[in-house]
Structure formats: C-alpha cells, structure tokens
Amino acid sequence: MIIDTKLKFSNLLLILIGIYFLNLSPTFAQSNPTLSVHPFLKNDSLKLGISYRNLFTGNIEKTLLAGLPILIELNLKVVDSGNKTIQSKKINGKISYDVWEELFNIQGLQSTENFLQTLDDVRNYFSEQLQTGLLPKKYLMSAEEYHIDLESRVTLLTRRQSRQLKDWIQTGEQTEEDLPSNERDTGFRLNLNNLVQFFIGEKNKPEEFFLEASSVKFRLTNLTN
C-alpha cells in the first residue's frame, strides 16, 4: 500500500513537471535583435555610439504601435585592462507612440526629447543616432587599454501595464466564482482572481529581455575624434 502511494506521488510529480515543460515556450517572437557599441572621442570626452538592429520588430513593434510605452534601460561600464570598472552609467529611457497624432516620442535616452514621425525614423534613431557621453578624456590614460560593456534591458510590459492587467482581471466578473450559500453562511468569498493576482502581482517580473554588447578593446590613441 505504501509502495503504491509512493508511486502515485512520483507519478504526480512527473505529470506536474510535464505540464510545466509542455507549456513552456518563448514569450517573444522577436527576430534576433542585436546590439553593438562603438566608442569615440568628441569634445575631449569619451562617448559611445549605441546601435540596435532588428529591435523594433515582432512584439516590440506591436506593443509600441498599440500605444503602450516601452522602457529601455542601459547599463554602461568603462572597464580597464585589469577588468576594473572605472566608470559606470545607467540610463533609463522610454519610447511611446501617440496613436492619435501618429507621433513617436523618445525620452530620457539623450539630453533632449525626440519626436519622430515614423517607425522607420525610430529604427534609424536606434541604429545610428543614439549616443551618450561617458567621461572626460582626461580621466583616461593614453597607454591603457579599455573596453566598454553595455547591458540593455527592454521592458515591454511595464509595472503600470501589469497593474492595469491585474485591475482588469480583478474587476472582470467572468472569472469570479460566487458561492452565495457560502457567502451567506460564513462570509467567505471564493475569488480565484485574488489567488491568481498573487502570481501576477506588480512585484512579478515584467515582460522584458536583455541584450548585451561589448566594444572592441581600444586605446585613446586609437579613437577617432
């Protein structure tokens, strides 16, 4: 009897694991976005050109064109030959699209806010025009060899959207299980949504993905002005 029960337990575990893996599938249908960085000198400062390719396709494109904002977080590090980070910088940007005015708005990535007319303009902006200053040239040694690491986090479903989704599910009457007799007897209200929200709560990881890039190793003398 006990052996049988153990078998049942292991079967249950296998079934649950099976269900989990059967339902695992990629969240994004994205056509291989790539990220590259190229450092350069300008006005006696080390600057970085950032280039995204194939970023605004698939779900990102759909999300953006639906008027939902997309967050881009950039974590930059200037690393010397001893793998020591001599400068780090974090940039938080936001891309949004005004569906009614058909205008793209890019905020936070550069010193000025950008308004662009078309998605191609946005693609062009992210493939060729995105630049950021890192540190003055005087803080770098000519003989030292450096490289720059960039981590980029693209968030499609912001916490605000998650909250809206959660609110939407909470107010959705279709999924609420009313048990009137129980309510009358005990005041207990079985609301599956509250349980589900525990798993979809705002603290949950939003829909996002990472891109990483490192520059080629360079010396100040190699960089073009």
């Binding site: 339902n23 599938s25 969240t27 999300t63 989704l165 939407w168 599956l192 798993f199």
Partner: peptide, 20 residues
C-alpha cells in the same frame, strides 16, 4: 492595448492560473 498586454502574457497568464 489590453489585448496587446494579454497577448504578451498569453503563455504566462494561464500558467499563473494553474499555479494559483
């Protein structure tokens, strides 16, 4: 927009219900 959000979570939300 809500549809887009649901579409983004098309794989996660049912799983969340299952987890619940």
């Amino acid at each position: 927009q809500m549809y887009q959000t649901l579409d983004l979570t098309r794989h996660d939300l049912p799983k969340n219900f299952l987890y619940a």
